[in-house]
């Protein structure tokens, strides 16, 4: 792989039927590129959790995956309500999801902690009223694995 592979997906808000399609494509591409299955799975968990956040909380947004020889970088960007207190949002069990979302089995306040657990690096920039940019990286070699 010489040039990085970049995948961009628009994600619709509240579209629970299509939710997960982008993550599924990212996972298929990683597999096709010969990325080890444990890394494909961690990347899939991160993209899916982040994609569900776009669908559930943000009114949609963009999901991007950039894959080079060393790493995969997963980015979601939205113009949603933003996260007022990121530390609070990172705590397991904290969620602002609706009852409808909870009935589908989501919104248990596990998403961001799960993203953190599966990423080697995670950055979240958020401004209330303007939106959120989440950047998660997984290194193929050389970086410490997340604690397991």
């Amino acid at each position: 792989m010489k040039d990085p592979v970049v995948l961009d997906f628009p994600v619709e808000g509240e579209d629970f039927l299509a939710a997960g399609e982008a993550s599924s494509s990212v996972k298929d591409t990683l597999k096709m590129l010969g990325v080890p299955s444990s890394i494909c799975r961690r990347a899939a968990i991160i993209t899916y959790e982040a994609e569900m956040n776009l669908v559930i909380h943000a009114g949609g947004g963009m999901l991007r995956a950039r894959i080079d020889e060393e790493k995969v970088v997963l980015v979601t960007e939205d113009q949603g309500p933003g996260i007022a207190d990121i530390d609070q949002a990172m705590r397991e069990g904290y969620s602002t999801a609706s009852d409808q979302v909870r009935e589908m089995g989501f919104g248990a306040g596990m998403g961001l902690p799960n993203i953190k657990r599966n990423a080697d690096r995670l950055d979240i920039e958020s401004t209330v009223g303007q939106g959120t940019i989440l950047t998660a990286s997984i290194y193929f070699v050389g970086e410490p694995q997340p604690s397991a």
Binding site: G105, G109, M110, G111
Partner: peptide
């Protein structure tokens, strides 16, 4: 019955 748990 909680997909969030399955994902974790």
């Amino acid at each position: 019955d909680l997909m969030s748990d399955v994902l974790a």
